[in-house]
Amino acid sequence: MVTTQPIGIFDSGYGGLTVMKEIVRKLPQYDYIYLGDNARAPYGNRSFETVYRYTLQCVEWFFQKGCPLVILACNTASAKALRTIQQNDLPQLAPSNRVLGVIRPTTEIIGNFTRSRKIGVLATNGTVQSGSYLIEIEKFFPDITVYQEACPMWVPIVENNEHTQPGADYFVKKHVQQIMLANKEIDTLLLACTHYPLLRDKITQFLPAGVSVVSQGEIVANSLGDYLKRHTELEIRCSKNGHRAFYTTDSTEDFDNHASIFFGQAIHSSHVDLDSNIPVADHI
């Protein structure tokens, strides 16, 4: 008999909930566990080694919870840690499990959104420095020219619930104008951070007419659905009771207050201490 367990969804903080929201909408039948490593967030400005070490620790936690599949719903973790985990750690930790990210599903179809073949990528410092989007888009769409812009203040703005306030306008306008100055023919902007969809209205406000803004949530959800159809040996190991559980490495009260903004509904989380790997309580 095959043992079934939830799908794990990971982010350094809250942003991955924008991806999880779309995954749950697309694939509501599955069980999901979300972990936000809020105590050590943000990851965007941390070194490759630190992001890799933190991400691996969280992946190991998911595996200890029984998850056969873990989605890194974090661009920085996907850029700085995913490949090493897949190639070096997974064969030893759990060779039949899988860890997927958000960059490849996005880069596989980003070419469908642009007519000019010029796109802009708005991301954290870590994602920009990794060059992951440049490398991956080149693989699938060598005719596309990619321009990147690091937006270091955007995650703190969103996490402090200032994304709808006038004070955010300066920082949004600054980076939108910078990326558009790179090439006036840019017709597609990719929000390559899962926090950024909450700034979408403000981003659009400062864009020229005709420039489309692409978020990752729906793309990743569709890609996951396709992946599970193609990998039935993994799909049958994913439990299907429609349950969701949320964990954070920091204050559950703070997490619940902020997370509902990203997920679109009330959340009741549990605290987990990754040093001991012992969850305090479950809310499934």
Rank of each mutant, 00 (worst) to 15 (best):
residue 196 Y to N: 15
residue 33 I to K: 06
residue 62 F to G: 00
residue 244 R to W: 09
residue 15 G to M: 12
residue 226 D to S: 15
residue 7 I to S: 05
residue 205 Q to C: 08
residue 46 R to H: 09
residue 146 V to G: 02
residue 87 Q to T: 06
residue 85 I to M: 05
residue 59 V to R: 00
residue 76 T to D: 05
residue 215 S to H: 06
residue 62 F to W: 00
residue 176 V to W: 01
residue 184 K to S: 14
residue 238 C to R: 05
residue 80 K to D: 03
residue 199 L to A: 11
residue 277 N to E: 15
residue 120 G to Q: 01
residue 251 S to T: 11
residue 229 K to C: 05
residue 236 I to T: 11
residue 119 I to L: 03
residue 8 G to Q: 08
residue 9 I to H: 10
residue 44 G to E: 03
residue 227 Y to D: 14
residue 128 V to D: 02
residue 154 W to H: 07
residue 179 I to Y: 05
residue 147 Y to R: 03
residue 89 D to A: 06
residue 60 E to V: 08
residue 165 Q to P: 14
residue 184 K to V: 13
residue 116 S to K: 04
residue 283 H to I: 11
residue 211 V to D: 07
residue 196 Y to S: 09
residue 178 Q to T: 14
residue 2 V to C: 07
residue 183 N to R: 12
residue 256 D to W: 08
residue 77 A to F: 01
residue 73 A to D: 00
residue 194 T to Q: 05
residue 228 L to P: 04
residue 92 Q to G: 04
residue 141 F to R: 11
residue 223 S to W: 10
residue 212 S to W: 13
residue 195 H to T: 09
residue 10 F to D: 05
residue 170 Y to R: 15
residue 76 T to K: 06
residue 116 S to E: 00
residue 215 S to L: 07
residue 244 R to I: 07
residue 1 M to R: 13
residue 113 F to L: 09
residue 4 T to V: 15
residue 176 V to I: 10
residue 259 A to F: 01
residue 16 G to V: 04
residue 217 G to S: 14
residue 192 A to L: 10
residue 235 E to F: 04
residue 4 T to R: 15
residue 71 I to F: 00
residue 134 L to I: 13
residue 223 S to H: 11
residue 143 D to Q: 10
residue 36 G to H: 06
residue 167 G to L: 15
residue 138 E to N: 09
residue 249 T to I: 11
residue 107 T to N: 04
residue 208 P to A: 04
residue 227 Y to F: 15
residue 269 S to M: 04
residue 119 I to D: 04
residue 205 Q to I: 10
residue 267 I to F: 03
residue 267 I to M: 02
residue 78 S to W: 00
residue 268 H to N: 09
residue 114 T to L: 01
residue 6 P to L: 14
residue 189 L to H: 10
residue 186 I to V: 08
residue 87 Q to Y: 01
residue 89 D to H: 07
residue 220 V to Q: 11
residue 130 S to F: 01
residue 141 F to T: 14
residue 23 I to Q: 04
residue 277 N to Q: 15
residue 200 R to Q: 13
residue 237 R to M: 15
residue 193 C to N: 10
residue 175 H to R: 03
residue 198 L to S: 06
residue 218 E to W: 02
residue 213 V to I: 12
residue 239 S to N: 01
residue 145 T to Q: 10
residue 233 E to V: 05
residue 26 K to T: 15
residue 23 I to N: 03
residue 262 F to W: 09
residue 208 P to R: 15
residue 141 F to A: 07
residue 166 P to C: 08
